[in-house]
Design a protein around this nucleic acid. Structure first.
Length: 410
DNA sequence: TGTCCACTGGAAGGGAGGGCTT
DNA sequence: AAGCCCTCCCTTCCAGTGGACA
């Protein structure tokens, strides 16, 4: 029989033992190294739920990749296992996705409504009505409901603390059910923005997840690597390097795992049968670039125009520019592409958003008589970003704009 | 010391777009 | 169909401001 074109690939030794999801941060392993203390503490609180009592509300703080979500999800599994004789509902919600008062209540309410036709619509009702519906549904049964609000700070910053006000005092309106809140945040300060009553109710208990150090990260990676790879596939130093790199970035386990996974994928793509430090370093670059490209791609068109304007200004030799500079370039690009021109006020906000995303750096600076304004610089690789931006159909007119424009700029 | 520039960023509100109820 | 509600994106208006310069 003739050789299949797939032959070389099939003959190759697979890098991954089986499931590469093991290296994704969303994978919850059988045990979580270096979080035993936190798990114990949280378990002692949640045990109340299994006894049919309302557990204290808990706030969990910790930077990204310190195992907050993993711990909470781990306990979710444990609660599911243990809740034989009592009714416990453990509801996880990410507030970056569900970020308005209405959508939180709607989302919660719908978890208790089985009939599709009865579901709360994602818009349309007065919030009060959604709340009442939720309360009614909750109270249909004797149960304890643990509501996990991940990235709770996002919710507060975006929509204020009204939802939390309602949710933390919902127990007063319930006869059969009991609700407790488990908030997760990577921002220690967000409670300052809460109404004092909400703050005190919400933080019966506080927990802080410290960042992992390099040693701990190495253990975590080691555990996953054993599951994901055969021993001879991975260089000894690889997990150490991933751990060290991630430890530099405030001990982010998510990052460490991403590094390892991408390094393995790079090795795999290159038909190599061993993961080495070289792959890790390439993974590091790759991840950084991916991050930027993804962010740029998902920008609204107006923001893309602004970013493009900034990059073009830089291509023409400007190293730093003011809001005014960016705005006039932006206006030219709008005319060129036929987009409507937004006001400068709006552009200020969009520039600040780009700054928050880390795509540009913009800081307010006073130039004395020259006025007070933002000083703006891009922080993305110009070439790759431009390539991504030009792929947007609405921006296709600007492809060859560079040279023509150069002459008109002083 | 005061002036004055080029904005900043808060507040309020319009209006479109989703969807509900009556 | 008319009258609501909620969110998102945007505009209008405007008081406030850090610091170079006269």
């Amino acid at each position: 029989m003739e050789d299949s074109i797939f032959e070389p690939y099939l003959a190759m030794k697979a890098i991954f033992k089986k499931d590469r999801d093991i290296l994704r941060p969303s994978y919850i392993p059988e045990n979580l190294p270096h979080r035993e203390r936190q798990i114990k503490q949280l378990a002692s609180i949640l045990a109340m739920a299994l006894r049919g009592e309302r557990p204290s509300n808990v706030l969990i703080f910790g930077k990204t990749g310190t195992g907050k979500t993993a711990t909470v999800k781990y306990l979710q599994k444990e609660v599911e296992k243990a809740k034989k004789w009592s009714r416990v509902d453990y509801l996880y919600m990410n507030c970056e996705v569900t970020d308005t008062q209405y959508s939180v209540l709607q989302n919660l309410g719908n978890r208790f409504i089985e009939d599709f036709d009865e579901r709360i619509p994602f818009t349309g009702w007065p919030t009060e009505r959604v709340y009442n519906m939720l309360r009614e549904k909750l109270d249909e049964e004797r149960r304890v409901v643990v509501v996990v609000l991940d990235e709770i700070d996002k919710l507060i910053y975006k929509s204020g603390d009204d939802v939390l006000y309602h949710l933390t005092r919902i127990n007063e309106d319930l006869k059969k059910a009991k609700v407790s809140i488990l908030g997760i945040s990577n921002d220690l300060k967000f409670t300052e923005f809460l109404d004092p009553r909400v703050r005190s109710r919400l933080s019966d208990e506080k927990m802080v997840f410290p960042p992992y150090n390099a040693e701990e990260l190495k253990d975590i990676l080691g555990q996953r690597a054993d599951l994901a790879f055969d021993d001879d596939v991975i260089d000894e130093s690889v997990t150490s390097l991933c751990a060290a790199l991630a430890a530099q970035e405030h001990g982010d386990a998510r990052r460490a795992l991403d590094l390892l996974r991408v390094a393995a994928e790079i090795a795999e793509r290159n038909n190599e049968n061993k993961i080495t430090d070289r792959h890790v370093l390439r993974a590091k670059n790759q991840l950084e670039l991916d991050c930027v490209i993804e962010a740029v791609k998902s920008l609204p068109t107006q923001s893309k125009l602004i970013l493009l304007g900034i990059i073009m200004n830089e291509e023409m030799g400007a190293t730093r520019m003011t809001t005014g500079d960016v705005y006039s370039m932006y206006k030219q690009l709008c005319r060129r592409t036929g987009m409507s021109i937004l006001t400068q006020r709006r552009i200020t906000d969009l520039i600040s958003e780009l700054d928050m995303l880390g795509l540009v750096s913009a800081r307010v600076k006073s130039f004395g008589r020259g006025g007070r304004t933002k000083e703006i610089q891009s922080s993305v690789p110009a070439l790759e970003t431009r390539r991504v931006l030009e792929r947007d159909e609405l921006l296709s007119n600007v492809k060859n704009f560079r040279l023509k424009f150069q002459t008109t700029l002083i």
